[in-house]
Design a protein around this nucleic acid. Structure first.
Length: 894
RNA sequence: GGGAGAUUAGCUCAGCUGGUUCAGAGCAUCUGCCUUACAAGCAGAGGGUCACUGGUUCGAACCCAGUAUCUCCCACCA
């Protein structure tokens, strides 16, 4: 038979994925005899494509799910997509524009038709891509946040929250995205550091009550005496002066006491506005005078309310100036700014321009600069929902991994503000509020129900459906995704159905910290509000995938590899393990192709271990010579399984992978297989083959969650399997205690230490790996040499191992444990070098002994330290002294 | 401006309640090897004042205080 020397993933991956699906391994059904294990996918944007972040995130989920499945749980991973209202609508608008169609020329229905067509065409590509990664989702459960059932869930919740008095409508200063032309929630706004310009503008003072009080106290003032004819204000937004309704100064500012009660004239416009006094104004920032523009700044709005000022809104939805501005009407805000600066300068109103570091708020989705804007929006009160949601994280009912995110979570929850849930878009769930002709409104699940309510509310029994007008706005996307863990099991339509009762609460959620508030926190709120139970127990927060230089991956930089290309090149298993090698929870992953290369190499290593075993011929007559090797590997394997389980419990995925990686590569391949490997083309005894096959099968099981494809391939190539016998559903190995495990491991470690010593000498002396050598040991543990004789001779390529009392002449030595070993080497001995080596060794041992002595001589140590610790120190001292004696003798013998 | 976390080998990170294994792992580097499972490999080696300064303790990478640097989160100074 011949097996390919290198593993070629492309040949087998699609095959196994299909088989698993045919077998229905990924399907989950409520099964009272099994424990449920549930994960809901963070639904990717329906029109999105797979990027590296998805790869990391979904690999982690798949590892968790596959392991749970093998542990005999009813593993249920629910896939699906998100309608992503702003992002998708923006994409559709852009696409239509390319076709020469403007959104404003379409009706809502026509637009939605286009949007759904787009969704049908491109939607769900990402889910197909996930299959190539090996994601073991229950595809029959695939959901979409805007499908009819989930939309109904959203509407039900809206109606319910409205009935509870938690949803309200109000005029508030909201974050307006002039590009998306919609309001955004506070969480969708990203502050960006910029260098901005501060314009100092002169406003002419026009007051009859002018009193020059500043002049009198001028000498005492730390501030320069202002121009009495003008008041200078500092602003970063000169184009909004047309919306000014006042100029505010601090009442305690001595520079401006003469202006108390005065009026000033807006430049260019010449409209008069009052000077108001408010301690909100900082004396030492800017000029100490603040222009008040209630329509376009939150603080100004609050000042306006406090001082009873009018509101002048000079902006259109798209960020251009409207006729209320009088000047620059129709120009975009930034164009208007450029123009007005020029005009102000010409008119002599521009005193100076300063550069200063500032922050602009931008839209997370469209990147547009946010315009604070007063508008009528729907809000959800958060206080009632946030309180219990904070509590369950504080008391670890929901555990965040890593736990440091608890702090972030707490701060946000304690300061949470009401959630603006309306969006001025079409792609999404239209708000089920219906306006009556009299301007009042009702909220109901359907138009028909709304009509009944409306008739009652208005006392007008003749109202018709056509008299009602439904709110134009849709709900924030997150208003559907916060219900996801419940809605995917139809928990709103049918709150007592078998699925939701069985699979909810889910177990683990894997997502990025960037949506901790958007999504995670709100799911916890919804879960507690609607099921009285948290939606999940553990939240694993991944990092961001960056490039090797730590930059975020982006299309512009071109530093983001195509995940599907990577899978083609390195295999899904290689990519999965590559991503996981260096991805502790919460840490950013610096992606480097070397990582997936390492993953690919690991696949190949495993493949070749299989090739070796598969290639052996059996001779039934041979005795079993590998008791020590088998005993040791059993112990090692079981110790490692325990370690692995612990890593999983703590969600240390990288550590878990590294643990199996080393078990396979170092312990199994480098040590165990080398110990039992028959000579070239020699047959193997049946018992060793049987046991080794079992070992390999166990390793395949441990590896399967990480590397599903290659493990399944080898599983089936290794021997004939029953029709349902897949590693995918094999039982996860349990720790089986091995007698004297610690001692077995320790003794083999010492034996391997001897092997290492001989190999080091081979390397140092340039002897090559196979030159026959002998070994002489000065040791008080001759039994070790007897027990491990075969292993030591084989791995170190020795023809003979003997016990001696004196160092043989002309030999090179090394120390392992407290014993000394010698390799006789005719004519290759450098006496000087040997002396130097021994002296160094001796010096180190003496230093070590002295430090232990010092410790033991310290009365306080002996008195305060734990007794067994002191005992150990005494043992260390004895060992060190024995070693020193041996070294001194050897040195004297030279 | 407020808060949280971090700083350990060239890189990415472990290091649990201070005390065997306390200075580790993987990758990278260097030196030998095409030794018939694997050169996508084998064998071996060299890398660190545990950010800095003090303190507590018999004993500190670990506890405390301060300093520096970095990251993240929150925040309305025009």
């Amino acid at each position: 038979m011949s097996i390919a020397k290198t593993y070629t993933p492309a040949d087998v991956e699609a095959k196994w994925y299909q088989r698993w699906q045919e077998q229905g391994f990924f399907k989950a059904k409520a099964n009272p005899r099994k424990k449920p294990y549930t994960v809901v996918i963070p639904p990717p944007n329906v029109t999105g494509v797979l990027h590296m972040g998805h790869m990391l995130n979904n690999t982690i989920q798949d590892v968790l799910v596959r392991r749970a499945r093998m542990q005999g749980k009813e593993a249920c991973w629910v896939p699906g997509t998100d309608h992503a209202s702003i992002a998708t609508e923006a994409k559709v608008v852009a696409l239509l524009k390319e076709q020469g169609i403007e959104k404003k020329d379409l009706t809502r229905e026509q637009f939605l038709e286009h949007a759904f067509a787009w969704k049908e065409k491109y939607g769900g590509i990402i889910l197909e891509q996930l299959k190539q990664l090996g994601a073991s989702c229950d595809w029959d459960r695939t959901r979409f946040t805007m499908e009819p059932e989930l939309t109904e869930a959203v509407l039900r919740v809206f109606v319910d929250l409205h009935q509870k008095g938690l949803v309200y409508r109000g005029i508030r200063m909201v974050n307006w995205d002039p590009l998306g032309q919609t309001a955004l929630s506070d969480e969708e706004v990203i502050p960006k550091d910029v260098m901005a310009k501060m314009y100092h503008l002169k406003y002419e003072v026009v007051s009859s009550e002018y009193v020059d009080s500043a002049q009198e106290q001028g000498e005492k003032s730390q501030y320069s005496i202002p121009n009495t004819q003008y008041l200078t204000v500092a602003t970063s937004r000169p184009e909004t002066i047309m919306a000014d309704v006042a100029v505010a100064v601090n009442p305690n500012d001595p520079r401006y006491t003469h202006l108390h009660g005065a009026k000033v004239r807006i430049p260019l416009l010449n409209r008069e506005i009052p000077v108001i006094l408010d301690e909100y104004v900082s004396i030492d920032f800017g000029t100490g005078a603040l222009k008040v523009t209630p329509a376009h700044d939150l603080n100004d709005y609050e000042l306006g309310v406090k001082h009873n000022l009018p509101v002048i809104d000079i902006l259109n939805n798209d960020g251009s100036l409207n006729e209320k501005a009088v000047l620059y009407v129709g120009q975009d805000r930034f164009a208007a700014r450029r123009n007005i600066v020029k005009d102000l300068e010409e008119a002599g109103h521009l005193v100076k321009v300063e550069e200063y570091a500032s922050i602009v708020q931008t839209s997370e989705r469209t990147k547009a600069v946010i315009e604070p804007r007063l508008s009528l929006q729907w809000f959800l009160k958060m206080e009632h929902l946030a309180k219990p949601a904070l509590e369950v994280v504080e008391n670890d009912t929901v555990k965040l991994h890593p736990a440091k995110f608890k702090n972030t979570y707490r701060v946000w929850m304690e300061n949470v503000r009401d959630w603006c849930i309306s969006r001025q878009l079409w792609w999404g769930q239209q708000i089920p509020a219906y306006y009556l002709p009299d301007g009042t409104y009702v909220v109901a699940l359907t138009a028909e129900e709304a009509l009944i309510q409306a008739r009652e509310q208005s006392g007008n029994a003749d109202l018709q459906l056509t008299d009602l007008r439904q709110d134009e706005d849709v709900l924030d996307t997150w208003f559907s995704s916060w219900l996801w863990p419940i809605s995917v099991f139809d928990g709103f339509k049918d709150p007592d159905n078998a699925d939701v009762n069985y699979f909810y609460p889910t177990n683990d959620l894997v997502t990025g910290p960037d949506i901790l508030f958007f999504w995670v926190a709100r799911m916890i709120m919804a879960g507690l509000e609607y099921r009285k139970e948290v939606p999940f127990r553990n939240v694993y927060l991944t990092g961001i995938v960056r490039d090797a230089q730590g930059r975020k991956m982006s299309k512009q930089l071109g530093n983001s590899p195509d995940p599907l290309d990577l899978i083609k090149q390195f295999g899904a298993d290689g990519v999965r393990t590559g991503m996981l090698f260096s991805a502790p929870a919460g840490n950013d992953l610096l992606y480097d192709e070397k990582l997936v290369e390492q993953g690919r190499n690991f696949s190949n290593k495993l493949w070749n271990a299989f090739r070796l075993i598969k290639g052996w011929e059996v001779d039934a007559a041979l005795p079993f010579p590998n008791e020590k090797a088998v005993e040791w590997f059993s112990a090692k394997l079981n110790a490692t399984i325990a370690e692995l389980d612990e890593h999983f419990e703590k969600f240390r995925m990288s550590d878990a992978l590294m643990t199996v990686y080393k078990l396979v590569w170092d312990d199994f391949c480098s040590e165990y297989l080398e110990m039992i490997k028959p000579a070239y083309q020699a047959p193997i005894d049946p018992e060793t083959l049987r046991l080794t096959t079992v070992f390999l099968e166990t390793l395949l099981k441990l590896l399967h969650p990480f590397m599903p494809f290659i493990t399944e391939e080898i599983w089936h190539e290794l021997k004939e399997r029953g029709p349902k016998e897949y590693v995918c559903v094999a039982a996860w190995p349990k720790v089986q205690p091995v007698a004297n495990s610690a001692e077995v491991l320790a003794r083999m470690e010492r034996a391997l230490g001897i092997v290492g010593g001989v190999r080091t000498i081979r390397n140092q002396k340039g002897l090559g790996p196979n030159k026959p050598l002998t070994l002489a040991a000065k040791t008080d543990d001759a039994q070790l040499l007897t027990d491990y004789d075969g292993i030591i001779r084989k791995l170190a390529a020795l023809t003979d191992v003997s016990v001696v009392t004196e160092a043989p002449a002309a030999s090179v030595g090394f120390v392992a444990g407290s014993s000394e070993f010698f390799v006789p080497l005719e004519g290759q001995i450098d006496l000087g070098a040997e002396k130097e080596r021994l002296s160094k060794e001796l010096e180190y041992a003496q230093g070590f002994r002295d430090s232990v002595l010092k410790k033991l001589a310290n009365e306080k140590f002996v008195a305060n330290a734990k007794p067994d610790l002191v005992e150990r120190e005494r043992q260390k001292l004895a060992d060190a002294e024995a070693k020193i004696t041996a070294l001194e003798q050897s040195l004297a013998a030279l």
